[in-house]
Simulated scan of single mutants.
Amino acid sequence: MNKLIQPRRAALAAILLLAGSPACASPHGWGKASGIVRDVLVGAALGVPAVQGDWQGDLQAAGSLVATGGTTYALKELIHERRPDGSDRKSFPSGHASIAFAAAGTLENRYGWQAGLPAFVLASFVGVARVEARRHHWYDAVAGAALGTGTAFAITRQRDSDVRLVPWADGGGGGLSLAARF
């Protein structure tokens, strides 16, 4: 079975889950959808390597998720940013976004852009949904995205790939650039 089939199935499953989710018109709907998509990404980050027998990839994915989660927790305890809905002072950074981007970064860094592109699209949805749910400010989601992606790229090693999506950021913005090896 082609190694790219599994990431495509994971992306298709995520899209089908989103299509079957309730409308996201209310903050509660956005919050629920962001949790579902985050969980799908974590499942893909851990499941794709397992299905392929890539136990090193599974360990790297788990390490990335644990390191991201721990760092996110520590930052929430150190930085007392009030959430937009006023519920508490643990807004910065977004844990949902950091974990979603750690999962996406792990998939991209380990398996290439074919797995990474749909995963980053879904992770971006999680960040937007957390803002729409009024659980985070936009900068909480951006910081979570940077933290998760950075941790994933620091811990996960590529399996093999000639084409890569590389995240970048500077004072004026950020994005993804396409890198190809010939």
Rank of each mutant, 00 (worst) to 15 (best):
A11C: 06
H80L: 13
W30H: 13
A10P: 02
L41D: 05
A45Q: 01
E77W: 13
L122M: 11
Q114E: 10
R9S: 10
R130Q: 08
T68F: 00
D39A: 14
T156Q: 11
L17M: 12
G127V: 06
A115E: 02
A33I: 08
A104M: 03
P49N: 06
A19Y: 05
R9P: 02
R82T: 15
H96P: 06
V48R: 01
L178S: 14
S34M: 07
A169M: 11
D58N: 14
A45R: 00
A14T: 15
F153R: 11
C24L: 14
M1E: 10
T68A: 03
S161T: 09
L75D: 00
E108T: 05
A154D: 12
S124M: 00
G174V: 09
P84W: 06
S91C: 13
A119H: 02
A119P: 05
G86D: 07
A179L: 15
A25P: 04
A143F: 04
Q158A: 15
D39F: 07
A123K: 01
L122E: 05
N2A: 13
R130Y: 00
G148V: 05
T71D: 07
R82I: 13
V121N: 12
A180Y: 09
A61R: 00
G31I: 04
N109T: 13
L17W: 04
S98G: 04
G35T: 05
D54E: 07
S34V: 04
N2V: 09
G69L: 05
A115F: 03
R38V: 10
A19D: 08
W55S: 14
D88W: 08
G171C: 12
I36M: 10
L75T: 02
R9W: 05
D58I: 06
V121G: 14
G47P: 01
V131S: 01
V163P: 08
P167F: 01
A103W: 03
P49F: 03
R38T: 14
F125W: 15
G148H: 01
V37F: 01
D170I: 12
T149E: 05
A103D: 04
S21F: 11
Q56T: 13
T149A: 08
F92I: 06
R83A: 04
Q52Y: 09
H96R: 04
F101W: 09
A100K: 06
L178G: 14
K3C: 10
K32R: 15
F153P: 01
A180F: 11
V121M: 08
D58L: 11
K3W: 14
T106W: 01
V66W: 08
D162V: 08
A179K: 12
L78H: 08
L12Q: 11
F120G: 04
V166H: 09
A33T: 13
L16P: 06
L16C: 09
D54I: 06
R159W: 13
D85K: 11
V40E: 14
P22G: 15
L46D: 03
R89T: 15
A44S: 09
A62W: 08
